[in-house]
Design a protein around this nucleic acid. Structure first.
Lengths: 144, 144
DNA sequence: AATAGTAATTAGAATCATTCTAAGGTTGAA
DNA sequence: TTCAACCTTAGAATGATTCTAATTACTATT
């Protein structure tokens, strides 16, 4: 998959909102842009910080993020190492690597992963909808 | 792997504490027993409820659980669907299936899983320490 | 046994991310 | 224009977790 540019990502989020009957208000636009421009795995608080300069309240940020998550276009990513919930804009099959030393988060694309997880789920008679895979270890720089 | 009995689990937790220089106090024993007897994926609050009948305070419960987690003998398991952090007493390679309808949690044992995750991590130049794999879907009963 | 020093426990207060509430603003259709 | 539904907002409330400060329980040494 080619890397998606911020503006493309933002438009995708907005399109998804509109497509499900949510109005593309300036506030929602700003939240989508802040999410897309973050680049990494933003927390709600980080987005609040960015958009409050434009007079947008935290309730709106939380509402919009919750809506986007319900639509499945972003994914919440609770971590052991962080008191904030982070969000992942990449909903393709991948695992999130978290360095237990420096805390950096790396998306590891792995097309075969969801298939394997779906197979494991099916052995328990269950269906697969989505996955949240987090691996802890030392990143390239920290392992020395 | 054979299913581990509650008393065996509790002794294992205590042994690990002692082995690392923590005193096996009655309070810590009670917490370990409550964790082991829970059967599923307990939250800290659930353990507090159980042991407060014996006059044990919540601070002690949180302290003990945090210690056990640091020793790697239990694993925290933050979920999208729950406001409490749950804990997993099974630290062997497996994935946690969460039914998005009824909320039940099923451990799916999968020996091959950690190897695959370690390989994916290594392609990013990173080392593998532990993993937290959560799959959402419909369980056998809820899928109809 | 007495003492000193360290470890453990505790109740209750503090923290802080997130959710809720209630009030006011915006939109679009009729 | 009017109305109803949707949207946003500040600030309050919630609630899990962590912190604080004081007390208690060990352990080792004399």
């Amino acid at each position: 998959m080619a890397i998606m540019q911020p503006d493309e990502r933002a438009r995708r989020l907005l399109r998804e909102l509109e497509h499900h009957g949510y109005r593309p208000t300036p506030q929602r636009e700003a939240v989508c842009w802040a999410l897309a421009r973050h680049g990494g795995h933003p927390t709600a608080a980080e987005i609040v910080d960015v958009v409050k300069q434009h007079g947008i309240g935290q309730a709106t940020v939380y509402n919009t993020i919750t809506t986007l998550e319900k639509l499945g276009v972003i994914q919440s990513m609770p971590l052991n190492t962080d008191e904030h919930t982070r969000y992942d804009l990449d909903t393709t099959p991948h695992m999130n690597f978290v360095c237990s030393q420096c805390g950096s988060i790396i998306d590891c694309h792995a097309p075969q992963l969801d298939l394997m997880l779906a197979q494991i789920a099916s052995t328990a008679g269950a269906t697969f909808e989505s996955a949240n895979v987090v691996v802890y270890g030392r990143c390239e720089r920290c392992k020395n």
